[in-house]
Simulated scan of single mutants.
Amino acid sequence: MAAKTPLEVAQYTAQTGMKKAQYPVSSVLVLSFLAGAFIALGFLLDIRVIASVPAEWGSLVNLIGAAVFPVGLIMVLIGGGELLTGNMMAVPLATIARKLSVGSMVKNLSLVTIGNFLGAIFVAYAFGHVLGLTGEGVYLAKVVDMAGHKLHDGFLQAFISGIGCNWLVALAVWLSYASDTMSGKVLGIWFPTMAFVAIGFQHVVANMFLIPAAIFEGHYSWGQYVMNFIPVWLGNLTGGALFVAAAYWVVYLRQAEPKVKPEVVTSIEPVEAEGRVMLSKQA
């Protein structure tokens, strides 16, 4: 089977969210560190590609950057990683479906937030600042400009932008779960992710790389970053948990899962009876 039905995706996602919350703390931290680093590398690639593109190209510049950014999420979902925005959909769905406690959900999202931040800031400092990939020339100018646009949004704007972002990113995760093939997963991830980047929505983990990268070069402050982090985190949670998880739970999982159909049971009984007869004859 090439793809799951929406009902099967909902069931699979709820099960996946439950499993995510049951991972050992050490595993969650390692996988979330990797995910934060992967998203940061995707953003770094975006910056390195578009920084020197002529301004006359207009919005086409955003499309080019958006087209390469999904590499990060592909590495997370296929290579392995715990990404906060994806967990903000899968783990709440498991909680709504009563497979997890609220405490387990909060613990998982908190640990993944920490791990993602460590991974993203490692890339921002080691590759961006120390190696100079975001600290010189047009690359520095692009980082400062992009970070400034993120920080310019007020609380409400950043919150709503966060909703839009994770509505799309959570759907990218959802579509990747729907496919049973590598190519299908890549395509499912690529287009919704490209859309959120091209639109300019705010992604809390991407910002964990972008804004600190600018701070390491002497621009902006950690206080400004915190005031951006809070509304974007809350907006991403709302987008993933409400607009994807809760919406699909209402449609597909609110009713109790159907019991085994009677005809399935009766179709098994003759086989079992026949087996008993055959065994008795052999005896």
Rank of each mutant, 00 (worst) to 15 (best):
N166L: 14
S183H: 08
K19M: 00
L44Y: 00
E272F: 14
A170V: 01
S161A: 04
Y220H: 11
A206R: 02
V71H: 03
V123D: 02
H219W: 13
Q11S: 13
K4Q: 07
G164R: 09
S104K: 10
T113Q: 05
L60S: 15
H149N: 09
A14F: 08
T13R: 14
L109F: 12
W233Y: 15
G80P: 02
N236S: 09
L187D: 01
W222K: 06
M89K: 04
G86L: 12
A120S: 12
E136P: 09
M88T: 08
F33D: 01
V61C: 05
A141E: 15
V138F: 10
V138G: 05
Y220C: 04
R98M: 03
H152C: 03
T238F: 13
S27N: 07
I78L: 09
K20N: 05
G128H: 00
T85C: 10
L133S: 10
Y12D: 13
Y248S: 14
F43M: 15
N62S: 07
P270C: 11
T238I: 08
V173D: 03
Y220W: 04
E217P: 06
F191S: 02
A158T: 04
V130I: 15
L140F: 09
E56M: 11
F196P: 01
V68F: 11
K261H: 10
W222F: 09
V25W: 15
Q157L: 07
Y225G: 07
T134S: 14
I215L: 10
V61G: 11
V71N: 01
G119E: 03
N166A: 13
S104V: 00
V277G: 00
D180A: 15
Q255I: 01
M88D: 05
G148E: 01
V76F: 11
L156K: 03
G17Y: 00
G164C: 14
Y225V: 06
K281C: 09
P24V: 10
V91Q: 00
F127E: 09
F127G: 05
S26K: 14
G132N: 12
G184E: 07
L31K: 07
P6M: 07
L84V: 06
T238M: 12
T95E: 08
S183D: 08
L77D: 04
I114G: 06
M227N: 10
S101E: 10
L237A: 06
K150L: 01
Y220N: 06
L109N: 13
N166H: 12
G200P: 15
I114P: 10
L234G: 14
P262Y: 06
G184K: 08
L29I: 06
G103I: 05
R98I: 03
G81F: 02
S26E: 12
F43C: 13
K142F: 14
V71A: 11
